[in-house]
Design a protein around this nucleic acid. Structure first.
Lengths: 252, 252
DNA sequence: TAGGATAAGTGGTATATACCAATTATACAT
DNA sequence: ATGTATAATTGGTATATACCACTTATCCTA
């Protein structure tokens, strides 16, 4: 069994399979379970945690679905490659990829304002007079900025958000942990653009360059827009990559 | 119960939950189950199909995961909106979106050659001397081409593929049904480009335009490259859209 | 020693059952 | 007619059990 593995709690309001999933995920994230490592057999893990094998299966199922684990019938369940197989969120895949290469990834908060903007309000599907947070952030890999993004959040959904919070933690993390948001899905539109001088300068680019412009909406599980982001990705030093799972039902 | 619903076969080598999933998916695809329709209750469906409720649950689970169905505890399980919530494959989302708007979607096969190309072989991760199918296809919506793509397939994996097959059915469908491929995942890189005159002309564009260039690799479940496609997307009349699910485990 | 049969271990599917949580329908009292 | 309590229905979680399919380890035989 995994050394000093925590036990899940039977008294928790959270489902057992969910607790187990989180527990295993933490072990992977913390590196106590490394790429290629074999998980304890489902039967053993079930015995150790004092739950049924089916409960273990359900926990593992979800991690397999999310690409963190790989099953091999007759052989075992193994930790998948660190660069997750199904990673679509563009920034996530950038940061993963860079971390893999041992490069540093950081975010610089350029602006944090409270605004009142008709266009942004429309995008967020709220009243024109509603106040909105406007964040401008620069994403940097190894001192080289690769995207400049403007994020808009309705104040009413995220009361008393402070600049400091954002410097300590990631926005998504704050949304989830502090405001209890359930981030469910996102939609993005991608366009080729010639990055204007002003934007380019903020990224430290001198001449006009070709780049990608991306608009993204993040939705909660009840289909409300939680966040709207538009971003300019430079293309001269980075590549925009998507990894996705093919659902065996669709045609095309 | 759904009118004249087929019964699944207990003698089939396919798992019961899998048969049921396919059956339900067919009903949705054929429109016999429409957006918003309620599925029979799991207990009823289990009784009708003579399987356990857990088996029904597993079948429905997968369709929920793929965004075709939506569950509401205490209320029922419903058919989700036609435009699937989690659709990443760019072409799939194009065609779905267009069908929704009542526009026609067709594919024109411009080239079907057998070639011997070092670059393509390298991309496909096969020997330089291996022969390769080269397909050039134009995707058209309502008589307006929106992308030109070059697809490369190793001959050894798809013996005796004919031009005629491709005109009748989609490539993915052929790969799956005729060659028994399990399409597992794909990776794509997106770049902004100025579409050259030759390419633009094939799409019926007169002047030079900004567009997107996409390279995509499709992998089988055992991680082999099944297909390599590069495509030019025009951006003057269409928008490149991605829809994806947010996995509640990741940060960013 | 090599090969093949066997056993053990792993994940995969399937069932029957039990109880919980949320929603909806019903019956009843006012 | 309205509101409220209750029952019925639906999906959610969890268990114990059984057997299958595939892989790996072991043992025995030639």
């Amino acid at each position: 069994m995994i050394k000093k593995m925590k036990k899940i709690s039977k008294n928790s309001p959270l489902p057992l399979y969910y607790q187990l999933k989180e527990l295993l995920f933490e072990l992977i994230k913390e590196g106590r379970l490394k790429t290629g490592d074999r998980l304890p057999a489902a039967r053993k893990l079930a015995e150790y945690q004092d739950v049924s094998r089916m409960t273990v299966k359900k926990a593992v199922d979800e991690l397999v679905n999310n690409g963190y684990l790989v099953r091999k019938q007759g052989s075992g369940t193994f930790v998948a490659e660190l660069n997750k197989e199904y990673e679509i969120s563009p920034i996530a895949s950038f940061s993963e990829e860079m971390k893999k290469k041992g490069l540093s990834f950081k975010t610089e908060l350029i602006k944090f304002d409270i605004i009142n903007d008709k266009n942004a309000a429309e995008k967020l599907n709220i009243e024109a007079e509603d106040r909105i947070y406007h964040l401008q952030r620069l994403r940097i890999i190894d001192d080289l900025p690769f995207l400049l993004e403007n994020t808009y959040l309705p104040i009413k959904d995220f009361p008393s958000l402070e600049k400091e919070n954002l410097q300590e933690s990631s926005l998504f993390k704050i949304m989830k942990e502090r405001y209890g948001c359930i981030l469910s899905r996102a939609e993005a539109e991608i366009e080729p653009v010639i990055i204007n001088k002003d934007t380019a300068e903020k990224m430290g680019i001198k001449k006009q360059v070709l780049g990608l412009y991306l608009e993204q909406f993040t939705y909660s599980s009840d289909n409300k827009i939680l966040e709207y982001t538009s971003a300019y990705y430079r293309n001269d030093s980075y590549k925009f990559k998507l990894k996705f799972k093919l659902n065996n039902l669709e045609e095309v």
